[in-house]
Amino acid sequence: MLSMDLEKLSSDINAKVSSANAKVVKPEEDGAGDSSILIEASSIKEVAQALLDSGVNVLQVISGVDYPDYLEVNYMFAKFDLANPGQFTLKLRVPDKANPSVESITSLYPAANWQERECYDMIGVTFNNHPDHRRILCPDDWEGFPLRKDYKVQDYYRGMVVNPDEKMNWADREFAKRQEEISKAQQEKSQD
């Protein structure tokens, strides 16, 4: 759907920004889905400028993903041009999970303002030189980043219990636990 020639696009990016080191990431042999372009995290601002100059006029969404070894930030760019529409995903990887930081592109694409705030709120990537770097969906003094895989909900928020026992749906939890036990037993049986 609206796919673009990624090989050409990545070589264009490399020609304009030498430090980008752009390459095309394809789905694995037994995999499926879209291809995308992977660039060096430090070159995002120059690459965004180059894309903006080449007519990629819309940044749709920034989606952060937490992988075991690195955090990945996906920028979904699109060309809103009726004669020549297009869409592609630009990826960058931040290996430092304790202090991840990426340059903000809000000055180029105003859409990045809230999207970067959401990415910070959920995954914990800090965006340097962002004009209004705050959490957006969670309260400002919330701890942790909910969409990290190792996230644990804090016990107390401003002295209030976050998940009080009387408000938990215990019947639901017990049901889920029982289902898990049943499926485990079935798996063991099938292995025997």
Binding site: M1, P27, E28, D30, G31, A32, G33, D34, S36, Q60, N74, M76, Q87, T89
Partner: peptide
């Protein structure tokens, strides 16, 4: 079970 990969659908 979906195969490995990712998709952006709109």
């Amino acid at each position: 079970k979906l195969p490995k990969g990712e998709v952006y659908m709109r």
